[in-house]
Amino acid sequence: MTPSNSASDTATDSAPTGSRSALTSTSSTGSRALGAAALITVALGIVYGLIISPPDAKLGSTVRIIYLHVPTVLAAYLAFIITAVGSAMYLFKKTEFWDLLASSAAEIGVIFFAVTIIDGALWGKVTWGVFWRWEPRLTTSAVLLLMYIGYLAIRALPADPHTRATRSAIVGLVAVVNIPIVHKAVDWWRGIHQGQTVLGTVDPNMAGNQLFAMYMSMLAGILVFVWLLIHRFRVGYLTERTEDVALAEAIEARRLENVGHGG
């Protein structure tokens, strides 16, 4: 069927390669254009966030961590919402597309959210004086991260694709409940963390280049996220295809064996 070897040991193999290198990657014209746009906004975010925007009146340069903390958490929320939508759609449609979309988004969301927490801890050390306290926003954030790590762990368990997809879809739907809890934690319980930034007002007094740096980095975060999502989806799709190939070969081998032994 294909000249490829089994999936588990082809990592270093050079199977027949297209002469045009563009044919052997997960990029397309659209994703390359998106990637270029993402790089430009990231560059602008760096220039504005680190150089052009002025230090904060009270926080000094520490405010520059906000230009990372808010965009990454925004991208993570977006990712987890996509995971929930993909999970719900999978349970309806049972197609690989929705399973791959949900799982791709979840993995990227975990990465962004972990970075958000690290940035937040560094921010906390400088601003509050401590890296971490088990206060409401931070506690619920830790729970959220753990749940999505659990989602990825469930996907790593050996199972046939349908079982794996169904299990993780249920977790993907349950875990998204964390987002409003994390978001409202600053209102519901006493803690250290300041009020909502994402989906709330970015401080209405924030202005000028601070505000521009904030919006630019938020845009950069979203573009980078979408680029990552497309590529992660394609990697997941290709992984499934290599497994198809491996399975077909295994079946073929068994069939030949059966024939050989006279059934």
């Binding site: 601003t127 909502q196 007094n205």
Partner: peptide, 25 residues
């Protein structure tokens, strides 16, 4: 043995006239 600063979500560019406002806030 530990002091935690409660910072809120107000950011102001470092301008003299804004510092007064920040103090009022």
């Amino acid at each position: 043995d530990e002091i935690i600063i409660r910072h809120d979500n107000n950011y102001d560019e470092e301008h003299p006239e804004r510092i007064d406002k920040a103090k009022q806030d």
